[in-house]
Amino acid sequence: MAKVIVVTSGKGGVGKTTSSAAIGTGLALSGAKTVVIDFDIGLRNLDLIMGCERRVVYDLINVINGEANLQQALVKDKRTPGLFILPASQTRNKDALTKEGVEKVITDLKADGFEYIICDSPAGIEQGAMMALYFADEAIVTTNPEVSSVRDSDRITGMLSSKSLRSEQQLSPVKVHLLITRYCPERVQREEMLSIEDIDDLLGIDLVGVIPESQEVLNASNMGEPVILNTDSDAGKAYQDAVDRLMGIERELRFVKFEKKGFLSRLFGA
């Protein structure tokens, strides 16, 4: 059964697009045909993060308006087999995103054999964000350990349980996962930053992963290569763990404790 997964947050700039690219890539690497749809109409970015910006011809709105068909608009990823992206429009306004239009695109993607349909939501709670979450079976609520992000995550979780197709039709509720990103174990240890436990207490959502704050994320976006492909980086490994958990494989949390480097390891750079 195909799964529609929205990556959402309410608050902007918390790592939705980074996570959509990483998780989409990870799911495709597992052998499942996967598409990542950019719902950020007017501010497309997913293409850059995935490194396919020069091959974008048509976009989601063209498909909805019947100006291009799905096959013309889907951009095939060069590195990862079975991975596609459906870019957002750079020019239209977000009202072009209709419920019927999005529904048809998702139905057609399912008919085309896609197993995972990842929806990269824009920030906020307007049309674009509501359309990105409306058809979701599962949601990845991306949260930074910071007050406004946590509050917005709580709001968006409320929307998932009241404004989604599943809630309106009284189907089983959207399965909500918490993804904490930009986590700094060192600052948590100094009690300057909300801890995983704090966020868990506040939101009460099942944790699917914790991505540490990492330089490699910026590096990856500079190169247009989802960070999960950097298998040496902590962030890449943490995203891989999250993908595994999404697929039901148990993984212990990593990179969440601060280990003070001892004199010797500092000396030898361990």
Binding site: R151, D154, V188, E192, M193
Partner: peptide
């Protein structure tokens, strides 16, 4: 380092989240 501002963050969030619910 200023210890404990995370605690204050959590307390404030607990109140606002409960209120919004």
């Amino acid at each position: 380092p200023k210890k404990g501002s995370a605690k204050l963050a959590k307390d404030r969030l607990q109140i606002i989240v409960a209120h919004e619910h």
